[in-house]
Computed example of a mutant assay.
Amino acid sequence: MTGMQMVLVILSAAGATVLTRALPFLAFPAGRETPAVVRYLGQALPGAVFALLVVYCLKDVDVLAGAHGIPETIGILIAGGTYLWRRSMLVSILSSTVVYMLLVNLVF
């Protein structure tokens, strides 16, 4: 890659980054009410992302081999329990990940 190509790639990446950061402020300026669809997505997407994360984590689990999916099941229960307790996705995901990694590396 030539020097000019590198500069163009860096500039286009920087421009795309600035555009994606500024676009929400341009589309939804201060002082105007947020559209109902955007408010709905703000409420619905966190749960959908969480469900997608669970499905992705379980896609390669073989219940007929190894630990039979026990660490994964415990991790899911920890995630659900901590979310119901704290109502924080970050705490829920972090705690279940720590428990799962401990189970996989130290117990099973």
Rank of each mutant, 00 (worst) to 15 (best):
M1T: 09
T2F: 03
T2A: 08
G3Q: 08
G3F: 06
Q5M: 10
Q5N: 08
M6H: 13
L8T: 07
L11D: 03
L11T: 09
S12A: 09
A13R: 09
G15C: 12
V18I: 10
T20N: 11
L23W: 10
L26E: 03
L26I: 09
A27C: 14
F28D: 13
G31W: 06
E33D: 14
E33P: 15
E33I: 12
E33V: 14
P35R: 02
V37M: 13
V37C: 11
V38C: 06
V38D: 07
R39E: 14
Y40D: 15
Y40K: 14
L41W: 04
L41A: 12
L41P: 12
A44W: 07
G47W: 08
V49P: 09
V49Q: 05
V49F: 11
A51C: 14
L52G: 14
L52M: 13
V54Q: 06
V55Q: 04
Y56N: 15
C57W: 02
L58I: 05
V61R: 06
V63L: 15
A67R: 11
A67G: 07
A67T: 10
G69R: 03
G69M: 04
E72S: 10
E72A: 12
T73Q: 06
I74V: 12
I76F: 07
I76C: 09
I78S: 03
G80W: 01
Y83Q: 01
L84T: 00
W85G: 02
W85F: 07
R86F: 01
R87E: 04
R87V: 02
M89Q: 11
M89E: 12
L90Y: 09
S92A: 09
I93F: 01
I93Y: 01
S95E: 04
V98T: 13
V99F: 01
M101W: 11
L103W: 00
L103F: 02
N105I: 00
L106T: 02
F108D: 05
